[in-house]
Design a protein around this nucleic acid. Structure first.
Lengths: 208, 208
DNA sequence: AGCAGCATCAGCCAAAAGGCTGAGAGACCA
DNA sequence: TGGTCTCTCAGCCTTTTGGCTGATGCTGCT
């Protein structure tokens, strides 16, 4: 009988083959395909309908991991999607879970953690690395400090180095509104200046 | 006979095993050891004296890749050191080459590039991925755009979100001087505002 | 000796950002 | 229906930042 069919999605060949080698040590895993991009992943899921999709979020070019997850969900595939990435940024975690990821693993997870996560995922269990889980809990404990969607959008543009005027133009709102949002963002991030907000955002949220 | 002995250094197990699997396909490579940290790498080099050390720069905890390279050089090992990392940040490239790296590969390099780089490294050839090389050349062509040490110091503090006043206090210079430095930095980075400078610096220089 | 680059500082003015208060419209939920 | 969010906007005032010009001392190179 075949074991748990797995699709690997990562733009780095070495990561794919490493993961494949690692999963190959377990008798119940069966890596049926590998994709280097989100687009490729969609096609291969159609083709093989694997039980689990293990996906990196940061894909060099084209569709990123989050987008790929959304697309997979829309096509009502029954795959469990497991995020496997390097960084534990708040934004990515929330967006991935939001998009429909079953678990969130960091690349420095131990082999046992990885195995357990994949096995759990097919059973509908949601598994995540400890640092990831603690971040999520923190957000649940302090909902006041979580940015609203609009604020997150602004912050993202802020980290591009835009001025208030440019932010307003880009979002079709007045400069006054921009300043209001910024004030709220600063309060939530615990900073006083736009410079510190950018620094915090990029470091904390992995916004690049 | 044994082939080219290689030590792999990367804090991610999957990357190590992926690379190992990849190098295993070539008859002339011989991965003799793997390290998950800079400290471990130093010990294993002593023990095995491999011909080539393939090293990631970003190591989770403890000694980072650059520091490990320096240490290896000081102990006058004859190993060729090859950087194998995800990001092509200006700062990292310069620091790695400065520390004594023979080559600089990005993780999305093709297998052939990787093989060629390792074989080249043992022969004393310096190999780097195309994007890396172009960055280096650009710095050579436009030395005017390279920050002075003092400017780099300021920029680094700038990315912490400090105000002009704080920068002055931290560096024991007047606010006027801070503004002068900033104006020069902006010109060299091709930006107009401090926000854009921070964004550019963190993204381009990998300042985190 | 002279020149170039670097780091330092000053003053002036305009533009941008930030702090504060208040307020209206729509969505959502108890 | 009433309360709570969220998003939107305005005005006023202070602080910060940025643009410009000019200047001094030091170092290193020619």
């Amino acid at each position: 009988m075949t074991g748990i069919t797995v699709l690997l999605v990562d733009d780095h060949l070495v990561v794919r083959s490493g993961l494949k080698a690692l999963l190959g040590t377990q008798p119940d895993f069966d890596v049926v395909a590998e994709a280097a991009s989100g687009e490729e992943a969609l096609g291969l899921v159609e083709q093989h309908s694997p039980a689990v999709v293990v996906m990196d979020l940061a894909m060099g070019a084209g569709m990123d991991g989050i987008e790929a997850i959304k697309q997979l969900r829309q096509r009502n595939g029954r795959q469990a999607i497991l995020v496997f990435t390097t960084y534990d940024s708040d934004a990515d975690i929330v967006r991935a879970v939001d998009a429909g990821a079953m678990g969130y693993l960091l690349k420095d997870a131990s082999p046992d953690e990885i195995f357990a996560a994949i096995r759990g995922a097919v059973q509908g269990k949601s598994v995540m690395s400890a640092p990831v889980a603690s971040r999520l809990f923190q957000q649940l404990r302090n909902p006041d400090e979580v940015l609203t969607p609009r604020e997150a959008e602004l912050l993202s543009l802020l980290t591009q180095g835009l001025s208030n005027r440019e932010l307003g133009q880009r979002l079709f709102i007045s400069e006054a509104t921009v300043k209001t949002h910024l004030a709220h963002i600063y309060a939530k991030l615990g900073v006083e200046t736009r410079a510190a907000a950018i620094a915090t955002a990029i470091r904390r949220e992995g916004m690049r």
